[in-house]
Design a protein around this nucleic acid. Structure first.
Length: 255
DNA sequence: ATGGCTTGAGTGTCAAGA
């Protein structure tokens, strides 16, 4: 079973890229972030024609998350239960016995800002809910745009980013709390190339110069991580015309 | 040099991303 995550930065603009990537990469489940559309504008039919079931939790202009899956999407849930939030950032469902949790974690803008406080509060709420969700579903995968580079090796220039947004210690602490729940960063289960990133700024030819961050992640519960045989970042879609600024991350699980 | 692109909204030019 292949599971993947991709921040597409507008489903409307990126739909052709998503369809092409589904055909090439053949994921069994794909989590999408930043769809930037309401549910009624989401391209359900064309994705179903491509062989995927679809659930979406969207809003106008900002945020928005979806899960596409070849098999049935069972027991779908939206948002963080008990956490008052107008922003559409979470959707979850069970696919082939795996609880797939798709998240678009807030960016935080700047350390010390209101949005940063919201990010930390949001992360705490997610962690609390995940603790329960993992008891309900021991075979759980958390996928998405975390907007956190967990370690210095996930940053092109750790000195320049020291203490900055996406790299600050409170954010990295929050990431470690996911691991303390019993989850493993699938990407780090395997040897990886130096300077592996999942996001590159649109400006300054950042992709060509590999000036990036690894902020998109797949975390696996203990019961799943032992079945993980590969995890990679696919840079091919980032090389296309009008790409998303993020690349997809894909993990393979044996049954 | 706090910019540099891209998107959505909306038709001016700005917020937001990371």
């Amino acid at each position: 079973m292949k599971i993947a995550t991709w921040n597409v930065n507008s489903m409307k603009v990126r739909l052709p890229h998503v369809l092409d990537w589904l055909a090439v990469a053949q994921p069994d489940a794909l989590c999408l972030q930043e769809t930037k559309t309401e549910d009624k504008g989401f391209p359900y039919e064309v994705l179903q024609s491509a062989g995927y079931q679809v659930i979406h939790n969207g809003q106008k202009t900002y945020n928005g998350v979806a899960i596409l899956a070849r098999a049935e999407l069972a027991n779908a849930s939206r948002d963080i239960p008990g956490f008052d939030d107008s922003q559409k950032r979470v959707i979850a469902a069970t696919v082939d016995g795996v609880r797939v949790v798709c998240v678009y974690i807030p960016n935080g803008q700047e350390v010390g800002s209101e949005k940063y406080a919201y990010k930390l509060k949001w992360l705490a709420a997610l962690t609390g809910w995940l603790r329960e969700e993992m008891q309900r579903y021991p075979r759980l995968a958390l996928l998405g745009d975390f907007n956190i580079a967990p370690e210095n090796r996930d940053v092109h220039d750790p000195q320049a980013w020291l203490g900055q947004i996406l790299c600050s210690e409170p954010e990295r602490d929050a990431f470690r709390r996911f691991l303390e729940l019993g989850m493993t960063d699938a990407f780090r289960l395997f040897d990886q190339p130096e300077k592996s990133f999942s996001w590159w700024d649109y400006r300054m030819m950042a992709f060509r110069r590999n000036i990036g961050l690894r902020i998109d992640h797949i975390l696996l519960s203990t019961e799943l991580s032992s079945y993980c045989t590969a995890c990679n970042i696919d840079k091919a879609p980032r090389k296309r015309e009008r790409p998303s600024d993020h690349a997809p991350v894909i993990a393979e699980l044996t049954s």
